[in-house]
Design a protein around this nucleic acid. Structure first.
Length: 578
RNA sequence: GCCGACGUAGCUCAGCUGGCAGAGCAGCGGUUUCGUAAACCGCCGGUCGUCGGUUCGAGUCCGACCGUCGGCUCCA
């Protein structure tokens, strides 16, 4: 076995590959201004300032030019320079001048040279360009200078590099595999959802099989919530603008709200969040300390204006449904309620065998305009959240600036098949909205007290959650989730009647089954069921009809032979519990 | 929103430098009644994303818009 790949070595290699790319650009497109070119998790990129964008043909020419640079095995030489020297060297490049200006006084300023190309760079680099054994330029993209849309858009070239040809091939194969499980592709192939341009971008339509999948998840959650003392509520999709002015969403998220509609005397907006509605329900009665906690749950569909370039599939949409709930509790109940919510979220991940990590999101003190609520209230809620998380003894990281507008939160991030991480479950502690809406309960002392709110959504959005599940399972859902759990395949027309009786028995037992009675051969029906990733195919012919049996073929394990129908049903029920 | 690529039948795709719109699968009709991943024959199917322009002539060239994809920015 080859020695384990040292990430630092790979980073150096990719960093050097970025320099070789910049060198190639300087040869073929001398008018181009270099900016920055770091290594990334999967490769590297380099941003160039250039009037005309790079074409796919340009990329081919650059790959050839890079190969020449690598062939020369040029050493990466590091040299420390003075600030003045650096400014002189890069006098004609405003980007480098800006970077030099940002290097703190007293820090070393270094430049790296490979052959005829010199770049301002902190390093480190590979020994020489010949170490880059395998590389590929992947695609181009626009990217703002320093990531701000106020700055000029630069031309970015993405590439990747490895220490061997095999590693590169393995990476490219992985990209291909990831493409095959893309939820947008599988969504169409498996008949789960669609996007109609006439309905609108970012507004997915759920097809029957997708709707069954989603409903199965919703039913699971409803069942858990019922067991945990949640109460269902249902609220409309529109509300007066004033509601969101009080909550603060109108001010803080105006650019993400759909333009308002005019009623007779009021302005109505599509709801971007469910919480103010649930707050109104809480506020509709006098509440005693004995009534708390109150847990309102709703699969609430919300609408947020997203920039068109951001839309795609089920994971980035303009309308989506949250498995939302708002818990109103006394301060002394906060920690136990919080723990109950985390328990529910972990149950979801366990049921689906998903790997996750937890992240505490705190507010960014540098950017107070992103939030509502005073410092003291934030201090209180952040302290409460951190305490609750610590008591769980759950590994987590802390991210400053990742709070919600009204409070800190605990997010759960799930990694999907392509390695992307998705924020799925979330719990938020909120002292702000109860204050803004003047919520109260009467305490033991007969005095009014302010409740605390917990916002939580274990799935996050059903759309995004299903999108991630499609990719995670590559469409081959576990039995309990599969939209069609079994297809019954009669071998010849004379077996249709028995097939129908099998369907009735299994349907009555709660399974989602279909009979494939097309005038096709059994082989064709099996093939179609496999491609549709149906967990079980039940072949029925003369032998099965005579014995009240089914010949079971598993999607994953192949032909399992004939067993009694009652036995199949018992096995299936067991499997769904797992 | 910004940068780039792309948009041809329900799906996957071909159509070279402008000169009569193609294939496979799906669908429909027929034949076949079959034992674990595609039976056979035939037929239908397209305002080449939309609108405008250049040209004797546009799927092909140009522009705008709509949409999709890869990024950037944003994400309560």
């Amino acid at each position: 076995m080859a020695r384990p790949l040292d990430m630092d070595d790979l980073y150096r290699l990719r960093h050097s590959a970025a320099h070789v790319l910049a060198q190639a650009v300087s040869h073929l497109f001398p008018e181009t201004k270099m900016t920055i070119g770091p290594p990334t998790e999967d490769g590297f990129y380099y941003d160039f300032d250039r009037d005309t964008p790079f074409t796919p043909t340009d990329l081919e020419a650059l790959e050839a030019e890079m190969a020449r640079g690598i062939g020369r095995s040029e050493v990466f030489e590091c040299r420390e320079v003075t600030r003045d020297e650096a400014l002189t060297l890069f006098a004609d490049n405003p980007y480098k001048v800006e970077l030099i200006g940002d290097i703190p006084e007293g820090d070393r300023i270094t430049i790296y040279t490979n052959g005829d190309f010199t770049d301002l760079c902190r390093g480190p680099h590979a020994g020489n360009s010949g170490d880059i054994k395998a590389f590929r330029l992947l695609h181009t993209a626009g990217a703002y200078w320093r990531g701000s849309e106020k700055n000029k858009m630069l031309q970015r070239i993405y590439g990747t590099a490895f220490q061997s040809r095999e590693d590169l091939d393995a990476y490219l194969t992985r990209l291909e595999e990831a493409k095959k499980r893309d939820h947008r592709r599988l969504g169409r192939e498996l008949g789960l959802f669609m996007i109609s341009p006439l309905v609108g971008a970012g507004l997915p339509l759920w097809l029957p099989r997708g709707a069954v999948l989603r409903e199965t998840l919703s039913d699971f959650m409803r069942d858990q919530q019922r067991k945990r003392g949640y109460l269902p509520v249902i609220t409309p999709h529109l509300a007066k603008r004033e509601l969101y002015e009080i909550s603060g969403h109108w001010q803080a998220y105006r650019e993400n709200l759909y333009p308002s509609m005019h009623g007779e005397h009021e302005e109505l907006v599509m709801k971007p969040v469910n919480c103010p509605f649930h707050i109104q329900i809480y506020a509709s009665e006098r509440r005693s300390y004995r009534d708390l906690p109150v847990r309102y749950a709703e699969f609430g569909t919300v609408y947020r204006w997203e920039q068109s370039g951001e839309l795609g599939g089920l994971t980035r949409v303009r309308g989506f449904t949250q498995d939302d709930s708002h818990i109103f509790c006394r301060p002394d109940q906060l920690v136990s309620e919080f723990h109950g919510v985390v328990d529910l979220i972990m149950l979801v991940f366990k049921r689906l065998k998903l790997e996750y990590r937890a992240r505490v999101g705190l507010r960014d003190p540098e950017n107070p305009s992103k939030y509502v609520g005073g410092d003291d209230v934030w201090e209180q809620s952040q302290t409460a959240l951190i305490q609750a998380v610590n008591e769980l003894q759950m590994p987590h990281e802390v991210a400053v600036g990742e709070a919600a507008i009204y409070g800190p939160k605990l997010d759960f991030l799930v990694r999907d098949a392509i390695g992307r991480e998705w924020q799925l479950g979330t719990v938020q502690v909120d002292y702000v909205l109860p204050e803004r809406f003047g919520l109260e309960y009467t305490g033991e002392d007969g005095q009014p007290h302010r409740p605390v709110m917990i916002h939580r959504a274990p799935f996050g959005s059903l759309e995004r959650f299903v999108g991630v599940l499609i990719e995670h399972f590559a469409g081959a859902f576990p039995l309990w989730l599969a939209p069609v759990q079994a297809v019954i395949i009669p071998i010849a027309d004379r077996h249709a009647e028995y097939a129908e009786s099998v369907r009735t028995k299994l349907s009555d037992a709660g399974l989602r089954v279909q009979v494939d009675r097309r005038p096709e051969r059994m082989q064709a029906k099996i093939r179609d069921a496999q491609l549709q990733k149906v967990p079980y195919m039940l072949v029925v012919g003369d032998k099965e009809a005579a014995a009240e049996a089914v010949a079971v073929r598993s999607r994953d394990r192949g032909d399992l032979g004939a067993i009694a129908l009652t036995q199949f049903l018992a096995n299936a029920v067991d499997e769904m519990e797992m």
